[in-house]
């Protein structure tokens, strides 16, 4: 049925939406168009932009730092997104158990997600400190025992060479932020600490799963695991989907933690996409490449989101 729209309603509607309509023009459409334009320009913001066609994009093909930043972000997103999703779901299931003082546990798990990321980065920088950090202080004696009592004798019994056995006896703790591989691992690890909001969204979803479904299934003799996979998981799938999309969008924009904690190092091992854009734009005043990279980032996010939406038909269940 076509609704009849009076002139008065039309004007009122537009007047109420006016802040956003102006905002869309000034802070969305115009900047979007300009950044697309700049991505084809040589532009330093100090001089007028000069059109240079696809040059910025072509240069990105051979820009090693760009490749590293892209690759690092892919690795980060590919590991962090699925693991934070799984972890938050597990935590939500655990926190959903009807036990005493469940509220306190929920609060504790939620709190870290409120901490400003700059502060998070500093706390973890201190925890991961190779010499004085709490993590290595706890790891060192454990690794010492593990190497001496278990790994070295085991390798010896299996007939490994003297050198291998000796190196296993002296297994040491990683230097974390000083080591290219461990630095990335540390940053992924920190993303597990800030899952509070995802957990709360899962908890809300869990509370919406009808009790009767579980009760009926239980009467039919379905075990807890069977019920999880055949009731909880399908009922929760829209929430999983929402968190997945949010995870994809968020992980591709990671900036604060590595910027403060490692500055992209050691080497470029924790240089992420948004950091490189920031560096190109505001440290090197290469606005053209910065905008080109930002547009590629937008396209990647749109592509991944579209992929998620396409796959949703297969696994997301709307009651």
């Amino acid at each position: 049925m076509r609704e009849r729209i009076t002139r008065r309603e039309q004007l009122a509607g537009m007047a109420f939406a006016a802040p956003y309509l102006i905002g869309v023009a000034a802070f969305l459409v115009y900047p979007l168009a300009m950044s697309l334009y700049y991505s084809f320009c040589n532009y330093s913001m100090l001089q007028p932009a000069i059109w240079i066609g696809w040059t910025n994009y072509r240069h990105l093909l051979t820009d090693h730092a760009f490749h590293t930043a892209l690759w690092n972000t892919i690795i980060y997103a590919a590991i962090s997104v699925p693991f934070t999703l799984a972890l938050s779901l597990l935590l939500a299931l655990l926190l959903n158990q009807p036990v005493r003082s469940a509220g306190i546990y929920r609060t504790i798990v939620f709190m870290p997600s409120l901490v400003p990321l700059v502060a998070s980065a500093l706390i973890w920088q201190w925890l991961f400190n190779a010499d004085k950090g709490l993590i290595n202080a706890a790891l060192r004696p454990m690794l010492h025992t593990l190497g001496r009592r278990i790994l070295a004798p085991l390798a010896g019994a299996l007939g490994a060479g003297q050198a291998t056995v000796e190196s296993l006896r002296h297994i040491t703790a990683p230097v974390w932020l000083g080591d290219p591989h461990w630095a990335m691992a540390a940053i992924i690890f920190i993303s597990f600490w800030g899952v509070g909001q995802t957990v709360v969204i899962f908890l809300a979803g869990l509370q919406d799963v009808p009790r009767e479904l579980h009760e009926a299934a239980e009467m039919d003799g379905a075990g807890a695991i069977h019920r999880f996979f055949h009731i909880t998981l399908p009922m929760l799938s829209p929430v999983i989907f929402f968190n997945l999309i949010m995870g994809i969008i968020g992980s591709w924009q990671i900036f604060d933690v590595p910027y403060v904690m490692t500055g992209g190092g050691p080497g470029r091992s924790t240089l992420f996409y948004s950091m490189y854009i920031f560096e190109a734009a505001f440290n090197q005043l290469r606005m053209g490449p910065a905008c080109a990279m930002a547009w590629i980032q937008l396209l990647i996010i749109l592509f991944l989101t579209a992929l998620a939406f396409a796959s949703a038909r297969k696994w997301v269940y709307y009651a």
């Binding site: 300009m34 969008i249 910065a290 905008c291 990279m293 937008l298 996010i301």
Partner: peptide, 25 residues
Amino acid sequence: WRGRGLVFGIVLASMMIPFPVFMVP
């Protein structure tokens, strides 16, 4: 009012756009 569906669509879509795209302009 006419156009509100479109505006709502823009609201939803714009949530996906990363900040670096706007940063320079």
